[in-house]
Amino acid sequence: MYHLIIIRMKKITVITALTIVLFVTYSANAQKNSQQLVEDFQKLSGSWNGSLTYLDYSSGKPYTMSADVEVKRINNSNEFEFINTYPKEKSANSTQIISISQDGKYIGKEEVISRMELVDGQIQIVTQKQGKDGNDNKEAVIKQTYTISKTAFSIRKDVLFSGDTKWIKRHEYAYSRN
């Protein structure tokens, strides 16, 4: 009987040790992923000039307008402020806060699907979420692709409406460094 208790205690100790090792490994990986995304977005700090091209659902045609953005990291946190200005349409100016989750799995409410370093040195981050889009607010999968380099930055939004098989390019911001 005493021998069985010792065997069970050893099994419990081994299981506990493995659980701790797995937890520490997971936590370290999550922190690394989060830190990498923060470093990627930190590269965006500063002023950018560019354009916004979006699909006008009413006409079915793309429309392009001037768009600038200033990106600031908020108090050394995982949050970044995007101050969007539209020189010819000042009423559209807006500010957006983008938060990177502590585990690096989300940018805002968007799940990070991939992060790749491209051959030319650019970083490409793809996120996805369920949402609604279009003039009639239809259910859709919304995919954002962030492409970051030292001199260029873009955010592309693609939409796959429920029941469809073809992605639609909803809009794309394309910027260059000031």
Rank of each mutant, 00 (worst) to 15 (best):
L37C: 01
V38N: 01
D40N: 14
V112M: 08
I12H: 09
G50F: 01
G134R: 13
V38R: 09
M1Q: 13
K105D: 06
T165I: 10
S176D: 02
G60H: 07
L4W: 13
V38C: 06
S101H: 00
I113Y: 03
I155R: 01
D136R: 05
K32I: 01
M9C: 07
Q35D: 15
P62Y: 09
M1H: 13
A28C: 05
K143S: 06
S34Q: 03
R170I: 10
T165M: 04
G121P: 08
D120L: 10
M116P: 03
S94M: 01
E89Q: 14
I107Y: 02
S91F: 00
A92T: 14
S27W: 13
S77P: 11
I123N: 02
E70Q: 09
F153S: 05
D40K: 12
A67N: 05
S99H: 07
D56Q: 01
S99K: 15
L160N: 06
K32T: 10
L22H: 02
K10A: 03
F80V: 14
K88Y: 07
K132R: 15
Q144V: 04
K32M: 10
T85N: 10
T64I: 07
I148R: 00
K88H: 09
K109M: 00
K43P: 05
L18C: 07
L4E: 10
V24Q: 02
K32C: 03
G50W: 04
L44T: 08
T95R: 11
Q122F: 03
S51W: 08
I125N: 02
I148T: 05
T53K: 07
I97K: 04
R73K: 12
A140C: 12
I20G: 00
E39T: 06
I155L: 08
Y57G: 06
Y2W: 06
D40L: 13
A140K: 07
Q31C: 03
H3F: 15
K32L: 12
K166I: 15
K11W: 05
V141H: 04
N78P: 14
I113A: 12
D158P: 07
S99G: 14
Q96E: 15
I100E: 13
Q124W: 06
L44E: 00
S114A: 08
L18D: 01
Y54C: 04
Y57T: 04
Q128G: 01
V21W: 09
W167N: 02
D133V: 11
Q124N: 02
K169L: 05
E111P: 00
N76W: 13
I142R: 05
A30L: 05
M1W: 12
W167S: 02
S99Q: 14
A152H: 13
N93I: 04
F153R: 07
D133G: 05
A174G: 01
N137F: 02
S99D: 15
L37Y: 02
K105V: 07
Q144W: 09
